[in-house]
Design a protein around this nucleic acid. Structure first.
Length: 582
RNA sequence: CGGGGCGUAGCGCAGCCUGGUAGCGCACCUGCCUUGGGCGCAGGGGGUCGGGCGUUCAAAUCGCCCCGCCCCGACCA
């Protein structure tokens, strides 16, 4: 294509509203323009790149037997009411009414619609398993869209759904997706980590998220370099670091002491001279309308996800001050487990085996020393804390690293939630009615592009992996008024095209600096520059990412670039010898 | 939904406090010049100052209300 005919509105400066690199570069490089908060126009370059990503996804989904469908974005309310999610999803679901005042919504996912198709048509075990997928726009009324295309209200998602006769079938479908996702993200050129994920209130049995490390992300994961353990922080387990001070030995009885005005763990630690790891943190939570006391080591944080799962109520809340006063007879800053009889007590594993710690006395401005879990109070020990920096791997004891990440994919063993509640039944081989088991698997298409930009950019612009860049090569004559250069550029451009390269000819009547800057910005992996060396028959091939340049005879230029793509196009696994002909 | 910030030419910003002819850089158009990293010179076009109401002889500027966007938090199948 001829750059002079294309709409690629690059910007010299960063728009003020963009903060994260991918957002800044997508705007500057002319990929996207905003229409409204969390709603973007995908211009020519973005669309090209997104189509390439979608094609990779499509090929790998097809390879595991997936069947692509196109489903409605507009759903009648009944569909969501039937599964109960019309209310559960709350304000995140875009709701609207038609001219007859019937309730409709814009689909944020397609479990219900897929299940309706399945229950209408699937009758026999002979028709299973099935893998159905779609690549299309989803809508979520995000409370706070942000970070460019990373958190938006309208986005493209690959969603697949599997239907199997039994758990073993689901396990196989899940595994197929896991493998396919690895291939997809490999082919997209991403460095990623698959982590164990929290399955949340959905009650699914297993779930993995595919994460790309980025400061622009919103999720944290814990990773062990030693044994490869990795998990979302919502789910990650660890061995706690050792307390900073060893416990006092001996069978001592709790002893009250005066702590005027000391309410926080830090204040009590300072007052007593014992570190936070020698304190106990008491949290009063209300789950399912009932109070629960949770005990943690002073320097640990409650994992809301873990507690929500344990309590069976993800909507739990901290107790109100008046409730705490009523139940404990003291303020939140002086609470402790000793003598508590009117509610269950859960204690984090990190308190197991500890002795003679400090806790609140349930009396304002007083604490207890010499409190020993299991002796001075009884509690159910559970994993309730968030993994902290410095914790050790629960499997191998190695150090755990905590990383900020962007979620690009999620695979999920749904179980029977939809098939059961929406009445999907088939007959088994022995004539019995069986409810198929389901899985659901998502990939955020735009997030792949964003993650690639977050991973691969420099001060000059994007350095997109060739497989998802909008073009593979740009041919740049340095001086348009030099007829020989233009002629050679056209010739090389045609050569690239005939070798099957996605090529762009920068025929704009601009100074070379402008063309170079723009080519760097939009992230095309290779550039062929036709300049002064043309007089000796040579042109320059430049690799965007490495800045490596090579002088090549005019006749060989296109082939030189085409050869660089051979490893990618022929063998997606790893670099192949560059000498193999195509 | 709570807290903060911003809204002036396509983009980035100044002007606002202290009311008095709406500015700068880039981009854009014309011409000349130049051609290996956003070149130079000259000329030119482009504005409901987010919207409404009010105060005033006079409002981009002061007051009230509304809208939009960004950031932090809450939220996030």
């Amino acid at each position: 294509m001829l750059w002079s005919k294309l709409f690629i509105p690059t910007l010299r400066e960063n728009p003020a509203e963009a903060e994260v690199p991918s957002h800044q570069l997508l705007l500057r490089a002319g990929y996207i323009r905003q229409l409204s908060a969390g709603i973007y126009n995908y211009l020519f370059l973005a669309q090209r790149s997104l189509l390439k990503i979608q094609q990779i996804v499509r090929e790998e989904m097809d390879a595991i037997g997936g069947q692509e469908m196109l489903l409605p974005a507009l759903h009648p309310a009944e569909v969501w009411q039937e599964s109960g999610r019309w209310d559960v999803m709350g304000d995140n679901l875009f709701k609207l009414k038609d001219r007859f005042q019937r309730d409709l919504c814009l689909g944020m996912t397609h479990e219900e619609v897929m299940t309706i198709i399945a229950r209408g048509e699937l009758r026999s075990y002979k028709q299973l398993p099935q893998i159905w997928y779609q690549i299309q726009t989803k809508f979520r009324d995000e409370p706070r869209p942000k970070s460019g295309l990373l958190r938006v209200r309208q986005f493209i998602m690959k969603d697949s759904y599997t239907f199997d006769m039994d758990q073993a079938g689901l396990d196989a479908a899940y595994d197929k997706h896991y493998q396919a996702y690895c291939k997809i993200f490999d082919r997209c050129g991403l460095e990623y980590t698959a982590v164990e994920a929290h399955s949340g209130a959905m009650g699914g049995s297993q779930s993995h998220e595919f994460m790309v490390a980025s400061e622009a992300g919103e999720d944290f994961i814990a990773v062990c370099k030693g044994c490869g353990y990795s998990a979302n922080l919502e789910k990650a387990v660890s061995k706690p670091s050792n307390p900073l001070t060893a416990d006092i030995e001996g069978d001592l009885a709790p002893e009250e002491f005066h702590t005027p005005g000391r309410k926080t763990i830090a204040e009590v630690a300072q007052f007593t001279g014992l570190p936070e790891s020698s304190q106990m943190k008491s949290l009063v939570l209300v789950a399912d309308g009932k109070p629960v006391l949770v005990m943690l080591r002073g320097d640990h944080q409650l994992s809301e996800a873990k507690f929500g799962t344990l309590a069976g109520d993800p909507e739990f809340r901290p107790a109100h001050p008046h409730e705490i006063r009523e139940w404990f007879g003291a303020e939140a800053g002086s609470l402790g487990p000793v003598g508590v009889k009117n509610m269950p007590i859960f204690a984090d594993h990190a308190l197991s085996g500890r002795r003679n710690m400090i806790a609140g006395a349930n009396k304002d401005d007083h604490h207890l020393r010499h409190v020993t879990p299991g002796e001075d109070f009884q509690a159910e020990f559970r994993d309730l804390r968030v993994v902290a920096a410095g914790d050790l791997c629960a499997k191998c004891g190695g150090p755990l690293e905590i990383r900020k990440t962007v979620e690009i994919g999620h695979i999920f063993k749904l179980g029977y939630k939809y098939s059961d509640s929406m009445g999907l039944r088939v007959l088994s081989a022995d004539g019995k009615e069986v409810t198929p088991i389901m899985g659901s698997y998502g990939i955020g298409i735009e997030r792949i592009l964003c993650a690639a930009i977050e991973l691969y950019h420099d001060k000059d612009g994007m350095m997109l992996p060739a497989s998802i860049a909008p073009f593979q090569v740009v041919v740049t004559p340095a001086n348009n008024s030099d007829a020989a250069q233009m002629e050679a550029a056209r010739h090389i451009y045609q050569g690239c095209r005939s070798l099957g390269l996605d090529a762009l000819l920068d025929d704009r009547d601009e100074r070379p600096g402008v063309k170079f800057k723009d080519a760097d910005l939009i992230g095309v992996p290779f550039r062929i520059v036709i300049g002064k060396k043309l007089s000796s028959g040579m042109v320059e091939v430049v690799e965007r990412k490495t800045r490596k340049t090579a002088d090549v005879p005019v006749a060989d230029a296109a082939a030189a670039v085409a050869q660089a793509f051979l490893p990618v196009s022929l063998a997606p696994v790893s670099p192949a010898p560059a000498t193999e002909a195509r």
